[in-house]
Amino acid sequence: MQKMALIVSAAMLLALPPIGGLADDSPRAGMADPLGSPRWENLRRAFFGDAEVVFDDRVKVNAPAVADEPLNVPVAVDASALTGVEEVLVLVDFNPIVRALRFEPGEARASLAFRLKLNESTPIRAAVRTADGVWHLGGARVTTSGGACTQPSAGSGASDWQQDLNQVGSRLWQRPDGSLRLRLRIVHPMDTGLAKGIPVFYIETLEITAGDGRSLMRIEPAEPVAENPVFTLDIPPGLSVDSPLRIAGRDNNGNLIHAETMP
């Protein structure tokens, strides 16, 4: 009888994780990546260091499960269910350039839609930092034939694209919920620098400000953003926007982007 009890307790010791196993030197070692990516631990260390990271269903990443056009994969990030969003970082686990885009929502909704180039099937993550310093992560998996980060842009192969470089098309819509939608598109090759003989050339910053100077959103696209980038963002109801919005930015070669759009 005693022997039996001993065996049982030995088995229990083996079956249970050691107490304190979750409290080793990495703060979230026990939190499994819901996307099951072998890259996750590396990414966590590289981008978040010792900061607190939580996987949070309130961070929505909408991307097609299967992307037939790896050069132009639509991604919509929505963190508007969180309050106090200060910045959003978009990471693509298996792209040669992992960091795809960063934005600070300012007075716009904490959501942004854009398009990425994918080099292979991969998780796409949005990491949302709230005012308390915690990173909230959401993500989606995309299957694709890939190869898009190492291809030359169409613009780099065209003879006359320079005359249209950094031309901005933008337009505002009144949405049924009272918010104001801004869509903008910029003519730019967004070359990653990974295609043979074509240097890296991409838009680094875009600031969208109201007429009175309030920042609505700051976007920092990176190399994996698709050629001729298109952005969709929403300005919540109640925010009076009666003078033209200003869009200003520059690319990594110092070429300036400037446009205004009327509400």
Partner: peptide, 12 residues
């Protein structure tokens, strides 16, 4: 993308 280009009144 082409429909967007036209809706945003862009040449390219």
């Amino acid at each position: 993308p082409e429909a967007e280009r036209i809706a945003l009144d862009m040449r390219r």
